[in-house]
Design a protein around this nucleic acid. Sequence first.
DNA 1: CTTTTTGTTGATTGACGAGTCAATAAACTC
DNA 2: GAGTTTATTGACTCGTCAATCAACAAAAAG
Lengths: 193, 193
Amino acid sequence: MAKVSAEPKRRADIVKATIHEIGVRGSLEVTVAQIARRAGVSSALAHHYFGSKEQIFLATMRHVLTIFGAEVRGALAAATTNRERVEAIVHASFAAGSFRREVVSAWLNFYVLAQTEPEARRLLGVYHRRLSSNLIYDLRPLVGARAPRVAEALGAQIDGLYLRAALAPARNRLDRTAAISLVLDTLMHELED
Amino acid sequence: MAKVSAEPKRRADIVKATIHEIGVRGSLEVTVAQIARRAGVSSALAHHYFGSKEQIFLATMRHVLTIFGAEVRGALAAATTNRERVEAIVHASFAAGSFRREVVSAWLNFYVLAQTEPEARRLLGVYHRRLSSNLIYDLRPLVGARAPRVAEALGAQIDGLYLRAALAPARNRLDRTAAISLVLDTLMHELED
DNA sequence: CTTTTTGTTGATTGACGAGTCAATAAACTC
DNA sequence: GAGTTTATTGACTCGTCAATCAACAAAAAG
């Protein structure tokens, strides 16, 4: 059965299955067997490719972070003024690919993972610093020395909206548009200081 | 050894030990044996009083929520004007009792628990609605119809700062004062609209 | 002082799940 | 087409842990 490079596809399938299972169960207490079944392979194969459950989680985290990074880059490419760029970052934060229920649930659980797993912490740190420096860079011309503070305020608000999205039952969940407009409102108030 | 009503003390000890262990391990993957050892009792006793691990977690959650509620009530008691009351809520949110590392870690994990455990979700819902209605009540005279929106903005920011506090390594962790001033800044901008 | 209630634990059970391994099979090399 | 590499799995091991239970101890009740 061994065909040309099944490995990349398998890895991708397992990573996607991991996001899905974390979303369904709502926690990291998913078994490798569950993930593997969802991906249509045996649990032995998952171990074969990733070595351990921990590595599966870390690969999944990298994947989510990569998607997010791509969304930010994409949004930034279309923006020209500083303000447009800040708004683009906000938009990207709630982009369709990253703000799906299961992905948000995965994010939440990655925060938990980061409490104990150094590599998870490092990855989350990279995301934080990048988001922060992106914001500060474009806020500087707009609000001067207050840039770091404003970036922190916006960043915290975005994170908080994610947290609430994870918790809220589907019916009264804030949608992407509402979340974006809330953050942009805060931004507006900061700018007209 | 059976003395006068050991039960309340034991229960309290076990709940405190649970917060501590969740804080240390950074996740709900703590064993009943670990919790019991920290509380100075056998794991059998923990089961005797609480029935199951799940119930231990729920009791711990109720305890954390109770402390938080008391802090809010205490802060509100000393406030008179609407604005003071809103500020009091913000202060209470970052009060010493609730903003300790281990407690914040517990909060984060309760969010995860709420994804699967209906009672945990209910408890967190109660907290959210109370915080929200408290804020809206005092914001209404200040910002009128925008009150719900502003409450959501402030609430999300507070939650986000908690999330970041859980993640950040001790050294560059935002302290209570800084968190409070950040939220009050946002409030100020909203008020001078 | 004997009976009941309350407190407490060590030992055990039973389930579950991560990780290993040996075996099978298909493709690729030469 | 013999030998190597890659893909894949079922069956197994080994540890861990929630939950139970039978037993013991001490107070309270009568």
